[in-house]
């Protein structure tokens, strides 16, 4: 699974990196972020692109797993 490590990066970098990854990867993508608002921004970005995701809390933030493109 492709991984985007956006931990500790300032807004809007996590969303920009997620968008970039979704353009090049049709399969599942795991995005790592630190802040709760970044998790929400990434989720919103994924939904805006017509894909689904599920988020879980990690030791140092959150992991948003984007489902493969349908």
């Amino acid at each position: 699974m492709k991984e985007v490590d956006a931990r500790g990066l300032s807004c809007p970098e996590p969303v920009m990196l997620t968008e970039e990854a979704m353009k090049s990867e049709a399969g599942a993508i795991r995005v790592l972020v630190t802040e709760p608002h970044q998790k929400m921004n990434v989720e919103k970005c994924v939904w805006d692109h017509g894909r689904n995701c599920t988020s879980t809390e990690t030791e140092d933030g959150f992991a948003v797993v984007i489902e493969p493109k349908k």
Partner: peptide, 13 residues
């Protein structure tokens, strides 16, 4: 600048 890859790097816990 952001589109050209600007970043101030990672913050850590």
């Amino acid at each position: 600048a952001l589109k050209k890859g600007f970043s101030l790097g990672r913050a850590h816990l």
